[in-house]
Design a protein around this nucleic acid. Structure first.
Length: 740
DNA sequence: AGCACGCCGACT
DNA sequence: GTCGGCGTGCTC
């Protein structure tokens, strides 16, 4: 036998080398990582970002922890890793965080990991930029254009081809000509950072009084460089941002990265500029409509540590920072922190978890903290930093309730004489009034005066809202729209349709009737011309180009109106009666924010809240400024509503995507099932509501993503009550009534 | 999540 | 006779 044939024999029949296998999280709802073979010579470690074959396609995955204990996968199924990306592996803390979130939210780890890898092509290093450097010599013919280029390039600094042409004010072909003559050498430059490095000492704020004390307390906490949660609770305009900027400065001095979470809507140019004024450079941005290229670069530079500060919406929480040392959650109470698809989570809570796992401080900030943060503050789990007064010369507006039972509007109107008088005086003084009504359109309900027909959405049974400006009836639930008819579709009578209740358009009509001379603007999401137009309108208002602004919740956030000295809440009671367990809290937060729009530059200002329930604790809390009493009461109410018995809650079923909900629901189902009276409801991602001082013993889990699975499960639950003390994961996207 | 397979209704 | 709806199952 020749050597050749023995080699062939060996290759064919020798036992194949046992391939090393590693677990890999793939972006798919599998309950655990899949095993892949590591090709000879490929170096992978836990956290490595890899490309692997999955069925017919190639996907991005992450090598996970845990060794060869792949639960008896058929070795024939094993496929090799295609390649490893040239990218720092996800840190151990990040992997622990992903695992934790996966367990807590009862979602597959692959889905959570996918959120951390949301940057299509960022896993390879950014390509080097081709650059030019002047190496001397002179061209055969020195034209004026060429001279200009040489003059600029002779400083020895590297230029890009376009950059040099642009700087010299010539076309790129001039530069090309010079390249052709060997005047330049081509070099490769590291791609420029997406933002400059922020400087903690750039423009340190001069803080005084309570702000200074707050900043010192906070910085002392940050200096410990260990896990802690601080809650900054300060009224609008109290300088919260300046205070947490000092925490950021301290973290930057420690050489660690910072993440600022903001609700998407608050992530504005003005915030970025404010940051730049303090730190001399903008933070990198991260949000859903970032250009793909920018997105990749921010992702990449967060992993490599080139970016020091990211300001982002909730998804930024899953950026795999190289060395994260601080998370700020601004507007911590904002419902936009809840993600309610795929992985259901509240970014504020997960920020706290990330801080605990990474052992660094987390700072929650709000003028109107959520009930759960308030509880955590009171119980001492979070340290609180209270900023009770406004900063500088701004004063809080003087707030009063208008009892609508005593100050009835004229027939067909919605504005009380008290409020109208106040608006009139404000406009006479040359100042601005804001009338707030959180209801788009002209009227929330239209009916026929002859037969009583009510216009209802054909798809989802909510009332159609009249939009008189557009001549439409719209469903605010599903988006259905139809032309407003002239005759009743039921009885055919012409011109007897009547609008019930007010919307902003109708308030504008009333305002124009009373103040025909005043310049009036309506601001709602129905505004034509999109964000740009809205921006223009807001700027115009700030410049004093309007006297009376009528707006929905769009006006509650962010923007400052220096001339605004009166805020009138047209119907403060909206939202108090809608059965949402957060109704009181949300109303308190929204109305506090709106009234906070007034008086931010020192002018004496007022707020009038029209209500039919002047004794309601929410109304009392807002006008008295005694938030603490409101929260104490609210917490007690929550406990009463959430803990059993559930009986008096509605017979609705909603999803339980977080563990806290699931536990709560398990109790509810157990209590309710024998009578099938109904099941307690909390929306997804409301876990902290249930966790407010609650104690939980059960977890029940419905596996499966199909409605039929859940229906079957729920029927069984309703028929027999829960059998297992496992875990519940009830996911509903169908009409709950259909089970009952 | 994707994607293939497979089983029943309206069509070139 | 086929095209295509979506219910079901699988991916290391």
């Amino acid at each position: 036998m020749s050597n050749d044939s023995s080699d062939l024999f060996g290759a064919l029949f020798a036992a194949p080398a046992v391939a090393r296998t590693v677990p890999v999280l793939v972006p798919m709802p599998a309950p655990r990582p899949y095993s892949y073979a590591v090709p000879e010579g490929m170096a992978v470690e836990p956290g490595s970002v890899v490309q692997v074959p999955l069925g017919p396609r190639q996907v991005i995955g992450v090598v996970w922890d845990g060794g060869d204990e792949d639960g008896g996968v058929d070795p024939k199924k094993l496929r090799p890793i295609t390649r490893v990306f040239d990218c720092p592996p996800l840190a151990k803390e990040m992997r622990n965080f992903i695992d934790w979130v996966s367990t807590y939210t009862l979602s597959p780890p692959g889905h959570v990991a996918r959120m951390a890898l949301r940057a299509p092509a960022a896993f390879d290093p950014e390509p080097m930029v081709e650059g030019l450097r002047f190496i001397g010599g002179s061209p055969e013919r020195l034209t004026p254009a060429r001279a200009k280029v040489l003059e600029i390039a002779s400083d020895g600094i590297s230029w890009t081809r376009n950059g040099l042409a642009h700087a010299a004010g010539v076309s790129t072909s001039v530069v090309d000509g010079l390249i052709g003559q060997g005047i330049f050498e081509t070099i490769f430059l590291a791609p420029p950072p997406i933002v400059a490095k922020p400087d903690p000492g750039f423009a340190a704020a001069r803080l005084e009084g309570p702000q200074r004390q707050a900043a010192e307390d906070l910085v002392a906490e940050i200096r410990k460089a260990e896990f802690s949660v601080s809650l900054i609770d300060g009224v609008t305009g109290s300088g919260k941002t300046e205070v947490y900027f000092e925490a950021i400065a301290e973290t930057l001095k420690q050489g660690r990265q910072v993440l600022i979470l903001l609700p998407e809507i608050a992530l504005t140019a003005s915030f970025l500029e404010r940051f730049q004024d303090r730190f001399g450079a903008k933070p990198a941005e991260w949000h859903s409509d970032l250009a793909p290229r920018t997105r990749e670069r921010v992702w990449r530079q967060a992993v490599t540590g080139d970016v020091r500060v990211v300001a982002g919406a909730r998804s930024a929480l899953f950026l795999p920072f190289e060395d994260l040392g601080l998370i700020i959650v601004d507007e911590e109470h904002d419902p936009a922190y809840k993600q309610e698809d795929r992985v259901f989570y509240n970014a504020r809570d997960m920020a706290v978890v990330r801080g605990r796992i990474g052992d660094f401080p987390v700072v929650l900030v709000s003028a109107t903290p959520s009930v759960e943060s308030q509880v955590n503050g009171q119980s001492g789990r979070y340290s609180t930093i209270h900023l009770p007064t406004r900063f500088g010369d701004a004063a809080m507006p003087d707030l009063h309730l208008v009892d609508m039972r005593r100050h009835a509007p004229e027939r067909g109107g919605f504005l009380s004489p008290v409020l109208l008088r106040a608006v009139g005086k404000t406009v006479e003084r040359g100042q601005q009034a804001l009338l707030f009504l959180n209801r788009r359109g002209y009227a929330p309900l239209t009916l026929c005066r002859v037969c009583g027909h009510r216009f209802q959405c054909p798809q989802c049974s909510s009332w159609l809202v009249e939009h008189r400006f557009r001549g439409q009836l719209q469903c605010h639930q599903c988006g259905h729209a139809e032309r407003t008819p002239e005759a009743c579709p039921e009885c055919g009578t012409l011109d007897h349709l009547v609008a019930c209740g007010p919307g902003v358009e109708r308030i504008a009509e009333e305002v124009e009737r009373h103040f025909p001379e005043a310049r009036t603007i309506v601001l709602s999401s129905d505004i034509t011309g999109g964000v740009k137009r809205l921006r223009l309108e807001l700027d115009a208002i700030a410049k004093g180009e309007a006297d009376i602004v009528i707006g929905t919740q769009l006006v509650a956030k962010g923007h400052n109106f220096p001339l605004m000295t009166l805020v009138g809440i047209v119907d403060a009671d909206i939202g108090l009666a809608n059965g949402d367990p957060r109704a009181a809290e949300r109303t308190f937060q929204l109305l506090s924010q709106v009234t906070g729009r007034a008086g931010r530059t020192g002018l004496k200002s007022h707020g009038l809240l029209q209500t039919y329930q002047p004794q309601h604790p929410v109304m009392q809390a807002i006008v008295s400024g005694d938030a603490a009493a409101f929260y104490d009461r609210e917490i007690t109410e929550r406990e009463r509503a959430i803990l059993p018995p559930f009986g008096r809650l509605a017979s609705i079923i909603v999803s339980a995507e977080t563990r806290g909900d699931a536990e709560t629901h398990a109790r509810g189902i157990r209590n309710a099932a024998p009578q099938v009276q109904g099941i307690a409801v909390l929306g997804p991602a409301e876990a902290p509501l249930a966790l407010v001082r609650g104690r939980h013993r059960f977890r029940l889990l419905v596996h499966g993503r199909r409605n039929s699975d859940m229906q079957g499960f729920l029927r069984a639950m309703l028929a027999q009550g829960p059998k297992e003390r496992g875990s519940i994961h009830v996911q509903l996207d169908i009409d709950p009534q259909s089970f009952l």
